[in-house]
C-alpha cells in the first residue's frame, strides 16, 4: 500500500514539476517565471521528503530544510530586484 502511494506521489509531484517548468519556459511575463521557480523549489522539497520516506532514512531532512531556506531567500531577492532594481538599498 505504502509503496503504491509513494510511486503515485512521485508521478504526481513529477508532473507538477513539469508543469512548473513549462511555465518557467513560456512565461509570458518575468513575474510568472519567478512564481514558477518559487513553486518548483517547494515541489522539490516535497520530492526530497518523499524520497526520504522511500529510502526509510531521515538523512534528507537537512537537505529539504536548506532548500526551503535558500529558496525563500532567492525568491525574495529576485522579487526585490524586479521591484526596486536593487537588492540591498
Amino acid at each position: 500500500m505504502l509503496s503504491f502511494a509513494l510511486n503515485a506521489a512521485f508521478v504526481m509531484v513529477g508532473i507538477a514539476m513539469l508543469l512548473g517548468s513549462w511555465r518557467v519556459l513560456v512565461g509570458p511575463s518575468l513575474t510568472d517565471r519567478v512564481l514558477a521557480l518559487d513553486t518548483l523549489y517547494i515541489n522539490s522539497i516535497a520530492l526530497i521528503v518523499l524520497f526520504g520516506i522511500y529510502l526509510g532514512t531521515s538523512m534528507y531532512f537537512e537537505a529539504a530544510l536548506l532548500i526551503a531556506l535558500i529558496g525563500f531567500v532567492s525568491t525574495v531577492a529576485v522579487a526585490k530586484y524586479l521591484l526596486r532594481g536593487d537588492i540591498i538599498e
Binding site: 503515485a8 504526481m12 509531484v13 508532473i15 507538477a16 513549462w22 511555465r23 513553486t39 518523499l50
Partner: peptide
Amino acid sequence: AGFTLVGSIGLV
C-alpha cells in the same frame, strides 16, 4: 501530492 499537483495545474 494531490494538492501539490493542483497547485501546479493552477499555475498552468
